[in-house]
Amino acid sequence: MITTTHIWQALEEVKDPELPHVSVVEMGIVRDVQLEADRVHVKMTPTFSGCPALDVMRHDIAAKVRELGFTQVTVETVLHPPWTSDWIADSARDKLQQLGIAPPIRHGGNLIPIAFLDVATCPRCGSSNTILKNAFGPTLCKSLWYCHECQDGFEQFKAL
């Protein structure tokens, strides 16, 4: 008998296509899983509204649930409460760090000071002797930084 716990576990295998190894569950993108008789309803929420990976994730989530044997699967996109980078789990923060991406600073709902603070710790050497080079990066969710210690660039996942 498959329960919602099994579905959540299966969804841990669905990765964010722009952040390999990080799952949609760890990212806080999957908000709810409902199982009623043989119907599964998944609620997901977009990180950045314009993220081109959203459609891929929506498709992959539905496909993963179908793999468990369900034929009636719906994936609903919800906007409330709005996704925040604070929901990114510690496990995902560690993975981001290993990928060379500084995890976002937790802001506890008070984003504006963080968005203007310009602080990032280099994911390679741990130095905070860093400088923001561009608030926009290769994907909507990342900014570009330079570490004066490593003398090399790195990315930070933007706080949202």
């Binding site: 509204s49 314009g50 561009n134």
Partner: peptide, 23 residues
């Protein structure tokens, strides 16, 4: 280059917002 990237990102954000309103 930085501004090319930044403006492209802003365009993509606005397109995502347009899609949100359209939905």
């Amino acid at each position: 280059l930085e501004e090319d990237i930044a403006f492209t990102n802003i365009a993509l954000d606005e397109m995502g917002h347009a899609a949100t309103w359209h939905r």
